[in-house]
Amino acid sequence: MKARVHVTLKNGVLDPQGKAIGHSLNRLGFPEVGDVRQGKYIELELAETDKAKAKARLDEMCRKLLANTVIENYSIELVG
């Protein structure tokens, strides 16, 4: 089974990289771009067939390592 994990900064946490990307896009002729938030995308191959079990384990992985919950949120998506 494959899992997709998105890690994003919590609302209210300053994202200077997102801001810089937004400014660059504005400068490049995309004035319609407003707020930009940058995050991480992590793809994992899992040796697990039970979706509920996989989700519980991924939740633990996110809390232990993949995300820092002081500043980040995470979302988990299972594929196939």
Binding site: L14, P16, A20, V70, I71
Partner: peptide, 16 residues
Amino acid sequence: AEAGLLPGVLMRNENL
């Protein structure tokens, strides 16, 4: 901080 020995977290410098 990541290990939870201290409160808070260190983020990217404001001016990058």
